[in-house]
């Protein structure tokens, strides 16, 4: 459509291609460097000139996963992320659908209110959350952190999904209503299948937020529910011999989410194209 259809523009395309290659490489240096650091002894990690050629060792990767309970923390992270996604996206989609079907003058203020919640500095919610958790005797349990993450994630999910549902013509649900469908049936049978790309996007962003969240995870979890980001931060302490470990842990923490990204990448672009950004 765009490039190939205009002959003589091949060269520009090549220039763009090469420029992108260079940019991507520079952009990824921090990651590449971290991978190299994770394969080095600390002595070689910080030198002038930078040590590029060295004998790689996997011992820090092995140590992180075998001696530091990282598998356990990964499980915690996965449970908490899955919990958050599976509560946040359905709940948010329902609300967003309703929001897209009520008159705009009522929907507007609700959306603004949701924004407001999002803008409040999250760190100030940490103390109230903790007080609440203590009161309910739920500190160091999965549901507490999941609920907290769902709550701070709701405004964004609703906002995102609202955009999708606006793109789906109202005539469709009205036709369903005329056919005798209830609200719920109309939503489930007619609307939901159309909103799937959007839900994938919402799920991906919920996943990113819940998998990567640090402050609430630090404060609301404990021995039993500690997540990967908290575990990895515990190495950032005094001793530089743990920096190779940090790097190894950091790479490890990225892998699952990179995998998910690779699987969902296509859906991400398609989903975003389908309407989220038109709200």
């Amino acid at each position: 459509m765009s490039a190939q259809s205009y002959p003589g523009r091949r060269r520009t395309t090549w220039v763009i291609f090469i420029a992108l290659c260079v940019f991507t490489f520079i952009n990824l240096t921090p990651l590449i460097w971290a991978v190299l650091t994770s394969l080095k002894d600390p002595r070689d990690a910080f030198t002038i000139p930078p040590t590029i050629i060295f004998e790689p060792t996997l011992k820090y990767h092995i140590e992180v996963w075998t001696e530091n309970d990282f598998v356990f923390y990964l499980m915690n992270s996965l449970i908490i992320s899955a919990g958050t996604v599976f509560i946040s996206v359905p709940a948010g989609s329902l609300a967003a659908y309703a929001l897209s079907r009520i008159p705009r003058r009522s929907a507007g203020p609700i959306l603004s209110a949701l924004f407001t919640i999002r803008m409040f500095p999250h760190m100030l919610l940490a103390i109230p959350f903790f007080v609440m958790g203590t009161f309910l005797n739920m500190i160091d349990t999965y549901p507490l952190l999941i609920l907290a993450l769902v709550a701070i994630n709701q405004p964004f999910t609703i906002w995102l999904m609202h955009g999708f549902f606006l793109e789906i013509p109202r005539d469709l649900d009205e036709a369903a209503a005329i056919d005798g469908c209830s609200n719920w049936q109309a939503f489930r049978i007619v609307i939901l299948p159309l909103a799937r790309p959007g839900m994938t996007v919402a799920a991906l962003f919920s996943l990113l937020l819940s998998y990567n969240e640090f402050l609430f995870a630090l404060i609301l979890t404990g021995t039993d529910t500690k997540t990967l980001p908290v575990a990895i931060a515990s190495f950032g302490g005094e001793d530089i011999s743990s920096w190779s470990l940090s790097a190894a842990g950091a790479i490890g923490i990225m892998l699952p989410i990179v995998l998910v990204m690779l699987l969902l990448q296509r859906h991400l672009v398609r989903g975003l194209t389908a309407g989220a950004v038109k709200g």
């Binding site: 921090p30 990567n212 640090f214 980001p229 950091a250 990179v258």
Partner: peptide
């Protein structure tokens, strides 16, 4: 290019 965005902020 999307990779940096999915890295945990602390990391």
């Amino acid at each position: 290019l999307f990779l940096p965005h999915i890295v945990t902020p602390v990391v």
